[in-house]
């Protein structure tokens, strides 16, 4: 009882006690709150800056990766430049794919042609089917035309190429035979010089005839490489002997 009384008395005394804070207490509190806010604000900026730096690094890495890829890509292209043969084979492949579709088209065509004969077929279906038949026929004729055109163009390209090379082969062989007759023997250096000269002429004529800049011809011209097919043909001709060459020369002279 006495204890409770004591505690109650103390409680009362302390509850009624007031201690006025110093005059600048509120200013200190304000400063503290502003500081807290600025700290939070700074943290936001800090997080933003960190995020920006991270994004920047990611973008830079991405650029570096793409640059590395770009650096690699040209080397691949340069090592395997597209040749006429490649383009020809690609065209043939396309043709093959188109031809494989042909039986399907003919089957459809046959069924479509039979369709109008049946009496029970609906008019709507007939109209649609007839339209489809016309479209398919048009496609087929277009396909056939393109096929013919490409084959003709390819043949002419091959013929032109072969005739040019053959002409040069004959010229080279003639000059070799002339040298052989004059000197009694032909050195490797002389043959190589003739081949180089002929190759350059072929390349120059190719560029002039096509009216377009042939990347392959230019490349070959610059590098001074000899076309394999041309070289093979010359050596083949040498192998076969001079008899054939002589007749060719004689024919040319006449």
């Amino acid at each position: 009882m006495a204890l409770n009384n004591f505690e109650e008395q103390i409680k009362e005394k302390f509850s009624s006690r007031m201690i006025e804070p110093s005059e600048n207490a509120w200013e200190l509190l304000e400063k503290k709150m502003v500081q807290k806010k600025t700290n939070r604000f700074n943290y936001r900026y800090l997080y933003g800056a960190v995020a920006a730096v991270f994004i920047g690094i990611m973008v830079m890495l991405n650029f570096i990766n793409t640059d590395v890829k770009n650096d690699n890509e040209p080397s691949v292209v340069e090592s395997n430049p597209p040749t006429i043969e490649d383009s020809v084979t690609e065209k043939y492949k396309e043709q093959e794919i188109d031809f494989s579709k042909e039986p399907v088209l003919t089957q459809v065509e046959e069924t479509e042609k039979e369709a109008p004969k049946k009496e029970d077929v609906l008019i709507k279906d007939n109209i649609i089917q007839n339209q489809e038949v016309v479209e398919i026929d048009n496609d087929k004729t277009l396909l056939m035309n393109t096929k013919k055109e490409t084959l003709e163009s390819l043949a002419s390209v091959e013929q032109k190429k072969d005739s040019l090379i053959d002409k040069k082969v004959i010229e080279v062989l003639a000059s070799i035979s002339e040298l052989n007759e004059q000197n009694g023997a032909v050195t490797d250096a002389e043959i190589n010089a003739l081949l180089d000269k002929a190759q350059k002429e072929i390349n120059a004529q190719r560029i002039l005839k096509n009216n377009k800049v042939d990347a392959t011809a230019l490349l070959l011209d610059v590098e001074g490489e000899i076309d394999r097919s041309f070289r093979d043909k010359v050596f083949e001709a040498i192998k076969n002997g001079y008899s054939k060459v002589k007749t060719a020369v004689a024919e040319r002279n006449h």
């Binding site: 006025e20 110093s22 207490a25 503290k32 709150m33």
Partner: peptide
Amino acid sequence: YSPKMLSICRQYINDIHYAEDVMISGFS
């Protein structure tokens, strides 16, 4: 509320200046 709260802080902390600092921190 600050006079009352400073009184409470003073009950726990001997030094009135420290008590006031703690009270300001508490109000914050």
